[in-house]
Design a binder for these strands. Structure first.
Length: 495
RNA sequence: GGCGUCUUGGCCGAGUGGCUAGGCACAGGUCUGCAAAACCUGCUACAGCGGUUCGAGUCCGCUAGACGCCUCCA
Protein backbone atom coordinates (compact mmCIF):
# COMPACT_ATOMS: atom_id res chain seq x y z
CA UNK A 1 0.00 0.00 0.00
CA UNK A 2 1.39 3.33 -1.05
CA UNK A 3 2.18 5.88 1.58
CA UNK A 4 -0.42 8.34 0.30
CA UNK A 5 -3.12 5.74 0.90
CA UNK A 6 -2.15 5.41 4.53
CA UNK A 7 -1.90 9.14 5.12
CA UNK A 8 -5.16 11.02 4.96
CA UNK A 9 -3.85 14.30 3.61
CA UNK A 10 -6.09 17.27 4.18
CA UNK A 11 -5.51 20.64 2.63
CA UNK A 12 -7.17 24.00 2.79
CA UNK A 13 -8.97 24.74 -0.43
CA UNK A 14 -9.22 28.48 -1.07
CA UNK A 15 -12.16 27.81 -3.36
CA UNK A 16 -14.34 26.41 -0.59
CA UNK A 17 -12.62 27.99 2.39
CA UNK A 18 -12.37 24.62 4.11
CA UNK A 19 -9.89 21.90 4.78
CA UNK A 20 -10.70 19.00 2.50
CA UNK A 21 -9.39 15.49 2.09
CA UNK A 22 -7.08 15.51 -0.90
CA UNK A 23 -8.43 13.28 -3.62
CA UNK A 24 -6.58 13.22 -6.91
CA UNK A 25 -8.18 12.86 -10.32
CA UNK A 26 -5.95 9.92 -11.17
CA UNK A 27 -4.95 7.63 -8.30
CA UNK A 28 -1.36 8.13 -7.32
CA UNK A 29 -0.77 11.10 -9.60
CA UNK A 30 -0.92 14.83 -8.92
CA UNK A 31 -1.08 17.64 -11.45
CA UNK A 32 0.16 20.81 -9.79
CA UNK A 33 0.53 24.29 -11.23
CA UNK A 34 2.10 27.27 -9.48
CA UNK A 35 2.29 30.80 -10.84
CA UNK A 36 5.94 31.64 -11.29
CA UNK A 37 7.74 34.98 -11.32
CA UNK A 38 7.66 37.78 -13.83
CA UNK A 39 11.30 38.03 -14.79
CA UNK A 40 11.79 41.76 -15.01
CA UNK A 41 13.88 42.12 -11.83
CA UNK A 42 15.63 40.07 -9.15
CA UNK A 43 13.29 37.95 -7.07
CA UNK A 44 13.06 39.29 -3.52
CA UNK A 45 12.64 37.26 -0.37
CA UNK A 46 8.87 37.68 -0.38
CA UNK A 47 8.62 36.15 -3.84
CA UNK A 48 10.75 33.29 -2.61
CA UNK A 49 8.46 32.44 0.27
CA UNK A 50 5.69 31.39 -2.08
CA UNK A 51 7.99 29.22 -4.15
CA UNK A 52 9.56 27.69 -1.05
CA UNK A 53 6.13 26.97 0.41
CA UNK A 54 5.07 25.13 -2.72
CA UNK A 55 8.43 23.41 -2.92
CA UNK A 56 7.70 21.97 0.52
CA UNK A 57 4.25 20.90 -0.66
CA UNK A 58 5.73 19.34 -3.80
CA UNK A 59 8.30 17.54 -1.67
CA UNK A 60 5.74 16.16 0.77
CA UNK A 61 3.46 14.91 -2.03
CA UNK A 62 6.45 13.10 -3.51
CA UNK A 63 7.39 11.81 -0.09
CA UNK A 64 3.93 10.28 0.19
CA UNK A 65 4.59 8.40 -3.02
CA UNK A 66 2.60 10.53 -5.43
CA UNK A 67 3.86 10.93 -8.94
CA UNK A 68 3.72 14.69 -9.29
CA UNK A 69 3.87 16.72 -12.45
CA UNK A 70 4.77 20.17 -11.17
CA UNK A 71 4.42 23.01 -13.66
CA UNK A 72 5.64 26.47 -12.75
CA UNK A 73 5.71 29.12 -15.44
CA UNK A 74 8.05 31.96 -16.22
CA UNK A 75 6.18 35.10 -17.17
CA UNK A 76 8.32 36.71 -19.82
CA UNK A 77 5.64 38.76 -21.56
CA UNK A 78 2.14 40.05 -21.20
CA UNK A 79 2.32 41.46 -17.73
CA UNK A 80 1.00 44.99 -17.83
CA UNK A 81 2.22 47.66 -15.47
CA UNK A 82 -1.34 48.84 -15.08
CA UNK A 83 -4.70 47.90 -16.40
CA UNK A 84 -5.43 51.09 -18.28
CA UNK A 85 -5.04 51.31 -22.00
CA UNK A 86 -1.65 52.94 -21.58
CA UNK A 87 -0.52 49.73 -19.92
CA UNK A 88 2.97 48.75 -20.81
CA UNK A 89 4.51 45.35 -20.80
CA UNK A 90 6.79 45.00 -17.78
CA UNK A 91 9.52 43.26 -19.69
CA UNK A 92 9.62 45.74 -22.54
CA UNK A 93 9.56 48.65 -20.10
CA UNK A 94 12.59 47.26 -18.33
CA UNK A 95 14.28 46.59 -21.67
CA UNK A 96 13.76 50.17 -22.72
CA UNK A 97 15.11 51.50 -19.43
CA UNK A 98 18.20 49.34 -19.50
CA UNK A 99 18.77 49.51 -23.26
CA UNK A 100 18.57 45.77 -23.56
CA UNK A 101 16.79 43.36 -25.80
CA UNK A 102 13.64 42.15 -24.01
CA UNK A 103 14.88 38.59 -24.08
CA UNK A 104 18.14 39.76 -22.55
CA UNK A 105 16.18 41.00 -19.55
CA UNK A 106 14.28 37.75 -19.42
CA UNK A 107 17.47 35.71 -19.58
CA UNK A 108 19.22 37.70 -16.87
CA UNK A 109 16.45 37.47 -14.32
CA UNK A 110 15.49 33.92 -15.16
CA UNK A 111 19.04 32.89 -14.36
CA UNK A 112 18.95 34.91 -11.15
CA UNK A 113 15.68 33.23 -10.18
CA UNK A 114 17.10 29.76 -10.80
CA UNK A 115 20.28 30.55 -8.87
CA UNK A 116 18.35 31.80 -5.87
CA UNK A 117 15.95 28.88 -5.84
CA UNK A 118 18.90 26.53 -6.09
CA UNK A 119 20.49 28.07 -3.03
CA UNK A 120 17.23 27.60 -1.18
CA UNK A 121 17.43 23.94 -2.18
CA UNK A 122 14.17 24.26 -4.05
CA UNK A 123 13.57 21.43 -6.50
CA UNK A 124 13.12 22.43 -10.13
CA UNK A 125 9.58 21.92 -11.43
CA UNK A 126 8.85 19.14 -13.89
CA UNK A 127 8.04 21.69 -16.59
CA UNK A 128 8.88 25.39 -16.56
CA UNK A 129 7.08 26.85 -19.57
CA UNK A 130 7.32 30.44 -20.74
CA UNK A 131 4.56 32.73 -21.92
CA UNK A 132 6.42 33.67 -25.09
CA UNK A 133 6.77 30.00 -25.94
CA UNK A 134 2.99 29.62 -25.99
CA UNK A 135 1.76 32.57 -28.04
CA UNK A 136 0.19 30.28 -30.64
CA UNK A 137 -1.80 28.39 -27.99
CA UNK A 138 -2.88 31.66 -26.42
CA UNK A 139 -4.20 32.95 -29.73
CA UNK A 140 -6.06 29.68 -30.21
CA UNK A 141 -7.77 29.84 -26.85
CA UNK A 142 -8.78 33.46 -27.43
CA UNK A 143 -10.49 32.35 -30.64
CA UNK A 144 -12.30 29.67 -28.67
CA UNK A 145 -13.46 32.11 -26.01
CA UNK A 146 -14.70 34.51 -28.70
CA UNK A 147 -16.52 31.66 -30.41
CA UNK A 148 -18.22 30.72 -27.17
CA UNK A 149 -19.37 34.31 -26.88
CA UNK A 150 -17.40 35.34 -23.78
CA UNK A 151 -15.01 37.80 -25.43
CA UNK A 152 -15.15 40.62 -27.91
CA UNK A 153 -12.67 42.41 -30.12
CA UNK A 154 -12.25 46.15 -30.03
CA UNK A 155 -9.74 47.98 -32.18
CA UNK A 156 -7.13 45.24 -32.27
CA UNK A 157 -7.55 44.17 -28.64
CA UNK A 158 -9.68 41.36 -27.24
CA UNK A 159 -11.45 41.60 -23.91
CA UNK A 160 -13.13 39.02 -21.76
CA UNK A 161 -16.78 39.85 -21.22
CA UNK A 162 -17.07 39.52 -17.48
CA UNK A 163 -20.68 40.71 -17.28
CA UNK A 164 -21.86 38.15 -19.80
CA UNK A 165 -19.81 35.42 -18.17
CA UNK A 166 -21.28 36.25 -14.80
CA UNK A 167 -24.82 35.65 -16.08
CA UNK A 168 -24.00 31.95 -16.43
CA UNK A 169 -21.20 31.53 -13.94
CA UNK A 170 -20.01 33.24 -10.82
CA UNK A 171 -17.20 35.68 -11.48
CA UNK A 172 -15.80 36.13 -7.96
CA UNK A 173 -16.27 32.55 -6.79
CA UNK A 174 -12.66 32.28 -5.60
CA UNK A 175 -12.18 35.69 -4.05
CA UNK A 176 -15.64 35.88 -2.50
CA UNK A 177 -16.76 38.90 -4.46
CA UNK A 178 -19.83 39.61 -6.46
CA UNK A 179 -20.00 41.59 -9.62
CA UNK A 180 -22.42 44.24 -8.32
CA UNK A 181 -20.05 45.20 -5.52
CA UNK A 182 -17.21 45.37 -7.97
CA UNK A 183 -19.13 47.64 -10.31
CA UNK A 184 -20.23 49.85 -7.42
CA UNK A 185 -16.67 50.19 -6.20
CA UNK A 186 -14.75 50.54 -9.40
CA UNK A 187 -12.26 53.31 -9.42
CA UNK A 188 -12.43 55.80 -12.21
CA UNK A 189 -9.53 55.11 -14.51
CA UNK A 190 -8.59 57.15 -17.52
CA UNK A 191 -8.55 55.55 -20.94
CA UNK A 192 -10.98 52.74 -20.20
CA UNK A 193 -13.25 53.69 -23.04
CA UNK A 194 -12.38 50.66 -25.12
CA UNK A 195 -13.80 48.15 -22.71
CA UNK A 196 -17.51 47.65 -22.55
CA UNK A 197 -17.25 47.28 -18.80
CA UNK A 198 -14.53 48.24 -16.37
CA UNK A 199 -14.45 44.67 -15.01
CA UNK A 200 -13.56 43.19 -18.38
CA UNK A 201 -9.95 42.13 -18.68
CA UNK A 202 -7.65 41.87 -21.67
CA UNK A 203 -6.99 38.59 -23.42
CA UNK A 204 -5.03 40.28 -26.18
CA UNK A 205 -3.65 43.79 -26.32
CA UNK A 206 -2.93 45.73 -29.46
CA UNK A 207 0.71 46.80 -29.57
CA UNK A 208 1.42 50.46 -30.08
CA UNK A 209 4.09 51.25 -32.68
CA UNK A 210 6.65 51.79 -29.91
CA UNK A 211 5.92 48.48 -28.23
CA UNK A 212 8.91 46.16 -28.61
CA UNK A 213 7.38 42.80 -27.76
CA UNK A 214 4.73 42.00 -30.35
CA UNK A 215 3.31 39.06 -32.22
CA UNK A 216 0.97 38.83 -35.21
CA UNK A 217 -2.58 37.66 -34.53
CA UNK A 218 -5.98 37.62 -36.24
CA UNK A 219 -6.60 40.97 -34.50
CA UNK A 220 -3.33 42.57 -35.62
CA UNK A 221 0.06 42.87 -33.93
CA UNK A 222 -0.11 42.67 -30.19
CA UNK A 223 0.68 40.66 -27.08
CA UNK A 224 -1.28 38.38 -24.78
CA UNK A 225 -2.94 39.41 -21.53
CA UNK A 226 -1.29 38.23 -18.37
CA UNK A 227 -4.04 35.97 -17.07
CA UNK A 228 -4.15 33.92 -20.20
CA UNK A 229 -0.75 32.28 -20.11
CA UNK A 230 -1.48 30.29 -16.95
CA UNK A 231 -4.76 28.98 -18.38
CA UNK A 232 -3.02 27.92 -21.57
CA UNK A 233 0.04 26.34 -20.04
CA UNK A 234 -1.74 24.58 -17.20
CA UNK A 235 -4.34 23.04 -19.50
CA UNK A 236 -1.70 22.10 -22.07
CA UNK A 237 0.50 20.21 -19.62
CA UNK A 238 -1.96 19.13 -16.92
CA UNK A 239 -5.29 18.90 -18.70
CA UNK A 240 -8.43 21.02 -18.73
CA UNK A 241 -9.10 20.06 -15.13
CA UNK A 242 -6.22 19.31 -12.80
CA UNK A 243 -5.67 18.73 -9.12
CA UNK A 244 -3.86 21.63 -7.55
CA UNK A 245 -3.19 25.26 -8.37
CA UNK A 246 -0.99 27.40 -6.18
CA UNK A 247 0.30 30.92 -6.00
CA UNK A 248 0.76 33.89 -3.76
CA UNK A 249 -2.22 35.27 -1.88
CA UNK A 250 -1.95 38.49 -3.85
CA UNK A 251 -2.72 36.63 -7.06
CA UNK A 252 -6.08 35.38 -5.82
CA UNK A 253 -7.79 38.40 -7.31
CA UNK A 254 -7.85 39.17 -10.12
CA UNK A 255 -5.35 36.74 -11.60
CA UNK A 256 -6.71 33.43 -10.36
CA UNK A 257 -10.28 34.58 -10.62
CA UNK A 258 -9.62 35.32 -14.29
CA UNK A 259 -8.01 31.94 -14.75
CA UNK A 260 -11.15 30.24 -13.52
CA UNK A 261 -13.29 32.37 -15.83
CA UNK A 262 -11.05 31.70 -18.83
CA UNK A 263 -10.95 27.97 -18.20
CA UNK A 264 -14.66 27.78 -17.64
CA UNK A 265 -15.37 29.87 -20.75
CA UNK A 266 -13.00 27.97 -23.01
CA UNK A 267 -13.47 24.42 -21.76
CA UNK A 268 -16.88 24.47 -20.17
CA UNK A 269 -15.76 23.43 -16.71
CA UNK A 270 -13.77 24.73 -13.76
CA UNK A 271 -10.04 24.21 -14.30
CA UNK A 272 -8.85 23.35 -10.79
CA UNK A 273 -10.05 21.14 -7.93
CA UNK A 274 -7.89 22.57 -5.15
CA UNK A 275 -6.70 26.17 -5.02
CA UNK A 276 -3.92 26.92 -2.55
CA UNK A 277 -2.56 30.32 -1.60
CA UNK A 278 0.65 31.02 0.24
CA UNK A 279 0.57 34.05 2.47
CA UNK A 280 2.76 37.11 2.34
CA UNK A 281 6.15 37.69 3.86
CA UNK A 282 6.27 41.11 5.46
CA UNK A 283 9.18 43.33 6.38
CA UNK A 284 8.61 45.80 9.20
CA UNK A 285 5.00 44.71 9.24
CA UNK A 286 4.34 45.57 5.63
CA UNK A 287 4.18 43.37 2.57
CA UNK A 288 7.49 43.08 0.77
CA UNK A 289 7.32 44.89 -2.49
CA UNK A 290 9.91 45.89 -4.99
CA UNK A 291 8.09 49.03 -5.98
CA UNK A 292 7.92 50.51 -2.46
CA UNK A 293 11.51 49.53 -1.66
CA UNK A 294 10.31 47.51 1.31
CA UNK A 295 12.09 44.35 0.28
CA UNK A 296 15.26 42.40 0.76
CA UNK A 297 17.02 40.22 -1.78
CA UNK A 298 18.07 36.69 -0.83
CA UNK A 299 21.65 37.43 -1.86
CA UNK A 300 21.77 40.42 0.47
CA UNK A 301 20.75 38.11 3.27
CA UNK A 302 23.25 35.38 2.44
CA UNK A 303 26.07 37.90 2.21
CA UNK A 304 24.98 40.08 5.13
CA UNK A 305 25.12 43.11 2.88
CA UNK A 306 21.87 44.83 3.82
CA UNK A 307 20.44 47.47 6.13
CA UNK A 308 18.06 45.20 8.03
CA UNK A 309 20.05 42.35 9.59
CA UNK A 310 23.10 42.38 11.80
CA UNK A 311 24.73 39.33 10.22
CA UNK A 312 24.49 36.98 7.26
CA UNK A 313 22.33 33.89 7.22
CA UNK A 314 22.65 30.60 5.36
CA UNK A 315 19.89 29.81 2.86
CA UNK A 316 18.76 26.81 4.93
CA UNK A 317 18.40 29.01 8.00
CA UNK A 318 16.17 31.37 6.04
CA UNK A 319 14.20 28.43 4.73
CA UNK A 320 13.87 27.02 8.25
CA UNK A 321 12.66 30.40 9.46
CA UNK A 322 9.90 30.27 6.86
CA UNK A 323 9.01 26.67 7.70
CA UNK A 324 8.50 27.63 11.35
CA UNK A 325 5.38 29.51 10.28
CA UNK A 326 2.41 27.97 8.52
CA UNK A 327 2.25 28.75 4.81
CA UNK A 328 -1.18 30.35 5.17
CA UNK A 329 -0.06 32.78 7.87
CA UNK A 330 1.48 36.16 7.31
CA UNK A 331 5.09 36.00 8.42
CA UNK A 332 7.12 39.02 9.44
CA UNK A 333 10.81 38.98 8.71
CA UNK A 334 13.01 40.53 11.36
CA UNK A 335 16.50 40.33 12.75
CA UNK A 336 15.37 38.90 16.09
CA UNK A 337 13.15 36.28 14.50
CA UNK A 338 15.79 34.96 12.13
CA UNK A 339 18.45 34.92 14.86
CA UNK A 340 16.18 32.78 17.03
CA UNK A 341 15.47 30.51 14.07
CA UNK A 342 19.17 30.07 13.40
CA UNK A 343 19.84 28.81 16.93
CA UNK A 344 17.00 26.35 16.78
CA UNK A 345 18.12 25.21 13.35
CA UNK A 346 21.62 24.52 14.67
CA UNK A 347 20.19 22.40 17.48
CA UNK A 348 18.39 20.21 14.97
CA UNK A 349 21.51 19.87 12.82
CA UNK A 350 23.42 18.79 15.91
CA UNK A 351 20.75 16.23 16.83
CA UNK A 352 20.92 14.76 13.33
CA UNK A 353 24.63 14.15 13.88
CA UNK A 354 24.16 12.63 17.34
CA UNK A 355 21.38 10.28 16.23
CA UNK A 356 23.85 8.50 13.96
CA UNK A 357 26.15 7.75 16.87
CA UNK A 358 23.47 6.26 19.14
CA UNK A 359 23.83 2.71 20.38
CA UNK A 360 20.77 0.50 20.27
CA UNK A 361 19.68 -1.64 23.19
CA UNK A 362 17.52 -4.67 23.94
CA UNK A 363 14.38 -2.65 24.53
CA UNK A 364 12.89 0.77 23.87
CA UNK A 365 11.82 3.09 26.64
CA UNK A 366 10.67 5.63 24.10
CA UNK A 367 7.63 5.37 21.83
CA UNK A 368 9.06 6.13 18.43
CA UNK A 369 5.97 4.96 16.57
CA UNK A 370 3.70 7.40 18.35
CA UNK A 371 6.16 10.18 17.63
CA UNK A 372 6.37 9.28 13.97
CA UNK A 373 2.60 9.22 13.77
CA UNK A 374 2.37 12.72 15.23
CA UNK A 375 4.91 14.01 12.73
CA UNK A 376 2.92 12.68 9.79
CA UNK A 377 -0.33 13.89 11.31
CA UNK A 378 1.09 17.40 11.42
CA UNK A 379 1.97 17.34 7.74
CA UNK A 380 -1.29 15.66 6.78
CA UNK A 381 -3.12 18.54 8.41
CA UNK A 382 -2.66 21.09 5.63
CA UNK A 383 1.13 20.88 5.68
CA UNK A 384 1.55 22.14 9.24
CA UNK A 385 5.32 22.53 9.22
CA UNK A 386 5.47 24.45 12.55
CA UNK A 387 4.02 21.44 14.35
CA UNK A 388 6.27 19.09 12.43
CA UNK A 389 9.26 21.15 13.56
CA UNK A 390 7.99 21.05 17.16
CA UNK A 391 7.98 17.25 16.83
CA UNK A 392 11.52 17.32 15.48
CA UNK A 393 12.53 19.20 18.63
CA UNK A 394 10.74 16.60 20.73
CA UNK A 395 12.80 13.96 18.94
CA UNK A 396 15.89 16.00 19.66
CA UNK A 397 15.17 15.68 23.37
CA UNK A 398 14.76 11.92 22.97
CA UNK A 399 18.03 11.69 21.10
CA UNK A 400 19.90 13.50 23.86
CA UNK A 401 18.30 11.32 26.52
CA UNK A 402 19.33 8.17 24.67
CA UNK A 403 22.84 9.52 24.15
CA UNK A 404 23.13 10.13 27.88
CA UNK A 405 21.85 6.65 28.68
CA UNK A 406 18.67 7.90 30.34
CA UNK A 407 16.56 6.14 27.72
CA UNK A 408 17.13 3.06 25.56
CA UNK A 409 16.06 2.21 22.05
CA UNK A 410 16.02 -0.96 19.95
CA UNK A 411 17.81 -1.19 16.66
CA UNK A 412 14.51 -1.22 14.75
CA UNK A 413 13.19 1.84 16.59
CA UNK A 414 16.47 3.68 16.16
CA UNK A 415 16.25 3.06 12.46
CA UNK A 416 12.75 4.55 12.35
CA UNK A 417 13.85 7.53 14.41
CA UNK A 418 16.84 8.21 12.20
CA UNK A 419 15.16 7.76 8.84
CA UNK A 420 12.08 9.74 9.86
CA UNK A 421 14.16 12.61 11.22
CA UNK A 422 16.28 12.70 8.08
CA UNK A 423 13.33 12.32 5.72
CA UNK A 424 11.47 15.25 7.22
CA UNK A 425 14.48 17.50 7.70
CA UNK A 426 16.23 16.96 4.38
CA UNK A 427 13.60 15.64 1.98
CA UNK A 428 10.36 17.26 3.08
CA UNK A 429 11.45 20.55 4.63
CA UNK A 430 14.28 20.71 2.12
CA UNK A 431 16.86 21.81 4.67
CA UNK A 432 20.58 21.31 4.40
CA UNK A 433 23.39 21.21 6.91
CA UNK A 434 25.29 24.39 6.13
CA UNK A 435 28.63 23.08 7.35
CA UNK A 436 28.31 19.91 5.25
CA UNK A 437 27.61 22.05 2.22
CA UNK A 438 30.83 23.96 2.91
CA UNK A 439 32.84 21.08 1.45
CA UNK A 440 34.13 17.82 2.79
CA UNK A 441 37.71 18.22 1.58
CA UNK A 442 38.22 21.58 3.24
CA UNK A 443 36.77 20.34 6.49
CA UNK A 444 39.08 17.30 6.47
CA UNK A 445 42.10 19.56 6.30
CA UNK A 446 40.68 21.71 9.05
CA UNK A 447 40.02 18.65 11.20
CA UNK A 448 43.68 17.67 10.96
CA UNK A 449 44.93 21.14 11.88
CA UNK A 450 42.43 21.47 14.70
CA UNK A 451 43.43 18.14 16.19
CA UNK A 452 46.95 19.49 16.55
CA UNK A 453 45.78 22.72 18.17
CA UNK A 454 43.41 20.92 20.51
CA UNK A 455 46.20 18.51 21.55
CA UNK A 456 48.55 21.41 22.29
CA UNK A 457 45.89 23.08 24.40
CA UNK A 458 45.16 19.83 26.25
CA UNK A 459 48.84 19.57 27.12
CA UNK A 460 48.90 23.15 28.36
CA UNK A 461 45.84 22.52 30.48
CA UNK A 462 47.33 19.35 31.91
CA UNK A 463 50.34 21.45 32.92
CA UNK A 464 47.97 24.04 34.39
CA UNK A 465 49.35 26.57 31.90
CA UNK A 466 45.97 28.31 31.61
CA UNK A 467 47.46 31.44 30.07
CA UNK A 468 48.40 29.42 26.99
CA UNK A 469 45.22 27.33 26.90
CA UNK A 470 42.98 30.38 27.24
CA UNK A 471 44.88 32.24 24.54
CA UNK A 472 44.31 29.33 22.15
CA UNK A 473 40.64 29.24 23.04
CA UNK A 474 40.11 33.00 22.79
CA UNK A 475 42.08 33.49 19.59
CA UNK A 476 40.21 30.64 17.90
CA UNK A 477 36.94 32.14 19.07
CA UNK A 478 37.95 35.45 17.52
CA UNK A 479 38.65 33.57 14.29
CA UNK A 480 35.18 32.06 14.39
CA UNK A 481 36.04 28.64 15.75
CA UNK A 482 34.50 27.66 19.02
CA UNK A 483 36.01 24.97 21.25
CA UNK A 484 33.61 22.76 23.15
CA UNK A 485 35.07 21.11 26.22
CA UNK A 486 33.26 17.96 27.25
CA UNK A 487 33.89 14.91 29.40
CA UNK A 488 35.25 12.99 26.40
CA UNK A 489 37.64 15.69 25.25
CA UNK A 490 37.36 18.80 23.16
CA UNK A 491 35.53 19.28 19.89
CA UNK A 492 35.06 22.40 17.80
CA UNK A 493 32.38 24.09 15.78
CA UNK A 494 32.84 26.66 13.05
CA UNK A 495 30.61 29.67 13.61
C1' G B 1 -15.65 53.19 0.52
C1' G B 2 -16.28 47.51 -0.58
C1' C B 3 -14.55 42.46 0.49
C1' G B 4 -11.46 39.38 3.48
C1' U B 5 -7.89 37.99 7.21
C1' C B 6 -5.53 38.70 11.71
C1' U B 7 -4.63 40.54 17.15
C1' U B 8 -1.52 34.42 21.68
C1' G B 9 3.50 34.92 27.42
C1' G B 10 9.87 39.55 26.85
C1' C B 11 10.29 38.12 21.17
C1' C B 12 8.91 34.63 17.06
C1' G B 13 5.06 31.25 16.33
C1' A B 14 1.29 26.60 16.42
C1' G B 15 -3.30 25.60 18.26
C1' U B 16 -9.80 20.57 15.52
C1' G B 17 -14.55 23.85 23.00
C1' G B 18 -12.34 20.45 28.15
C1' C B 19 -5.62 17.78 28.27
C1' U B 20 2.17 21.22 28.76
C1' A B 21 2.68 23.25 21.28
C1' G B 22 7.58 24.35 19.89
C1' G B 23 11.76 27.76 19.22
C1' C B 24 14.51 32.12 21.07
C1' A B 25 15.41 35.01 25.39
C1' C B 26 15.53 34.73 30.71
C1' A B 27 16.40 32.12 35.66
C1' G B 28 18.33 27.87 38.32
C1' G B 29 21.22 23.38 37.77
C1' U B 30 24.86 19.54 35.57
C1' C B 31 29.72 19.54 33.38
C1' U B 32 34.43 22.60 33.58
C1' G B 33 40.78 25.08 36.23
C1' C B 34 37.56 29.34 34.87
C1' A B 35 34.46 30.22 30.94
C1' A B 36 31.85 29.18 26.57
C1' A B 37 29.16 25.46 24.28
C1' A B 38 26.09 21.44 25.23
C1' C B 39 22.43 19.12 28.17
C1' C B 40 18.50 19.16 32.24
C1' U B 41 14.68 21.89 34.95
C1' G B 42 11.55 26.17 35.46
C1' C B 43 8.68 30.14 32.93
C1' U B 44 0.28 28.77 31.37
C1' A B 45 -0.37 33.73 27.61
C1' C B 46 -4.46 34.21 24.50
C1' A B 47 -6.56 42.87 22.17
C1' G B 48 -11.07 44.92 25.07
C1' C B 49 -16.29 44.26 26.30
C1' G B 50 -20.59 41.24 26.18
C1' G B 51 -23.06 36.53 24.86
C1' U B 52 -23.76 30.96 23.94
C1' U B 53 -22.05 26.59 26.90
C1' C B 54 -21.43 22.42 32.56
C1' G B 55 -16.84 24.41 30.30
C1' A B 56 -14.06 29.23 25.22
C1' G B 57 -7.65 31.26 23.16
C1' U B 58 -11.03 28.07 20.21
C1' C B 59 -18.24 29.52 18.63
C1' C B 60 -21.46 34.37 18.16
C1' G B 61 -21.89 39.88 18.55
C1' C B 62 -19.85 44.71 19.33
C1' U B 63 -15.45 47.98 19.97
C1' A B 64 -10.31 49.15 19.04
C1' G B 65 -5.95 48.19 16.23
C1' A B 66 -3.08 45.83 12.25
C1' C B 67 -2.62 43.65 7.52
C1' G B 68 -4.12 42.02 2.57
C1' C B 69 -7.05 42.49 -1.99
C1' C B 70 -10.10 45.89 -4.80
C1' U B 71 -4.26 48.98 -9.48
C1' C B 72 1.54 45.70 -11.31
C1' C B 73 2.61 42.32 -7.31
C1' A B 74 4.63 35.76 -4.79
Amino acid sequence: MASYEQNKLQLYNSLTGKKEVFKTINPGSVGMYVCGPTVYSNVHLGNCRTFISFDMIYRYLRHLGYKVRYVRNITDAGHLTDDADQGEDKISKKARLEQLEPMEVVQRYTIDFHNVMNKFNSLPPSIEPTATGHIVEQIEIIKTIIDKGFAYEKDGSVYFDVIKYNKQHHYGILSGRNIDDMIANTRELEGQTEKENAQDFALWKKASPAHIMRWPSPWGDGFPGWHLECTVMSSKYLGETFDLHGGGMDLKFPHHECEIAQGQAAHGHSPVNYWMHANMLTLNGKKMSKSTGNSILPEELFSGDNDFMQKSFAPSVVRFFMMQAHYRSVLDFSNDAILAAEKGFNRLVEALKIVKTLQSGASSTVDVHAWQKRAYAAMNDDFNTPILIAELFEATKLIHAIAEGKQTITEADLSILTTTMEAFFYDVLGLQDASAAAGEAASNHLDGAMKLVIDLRATARANRDFATSDKIRDDLAAAGIQLNDGPDGTSFTVQ
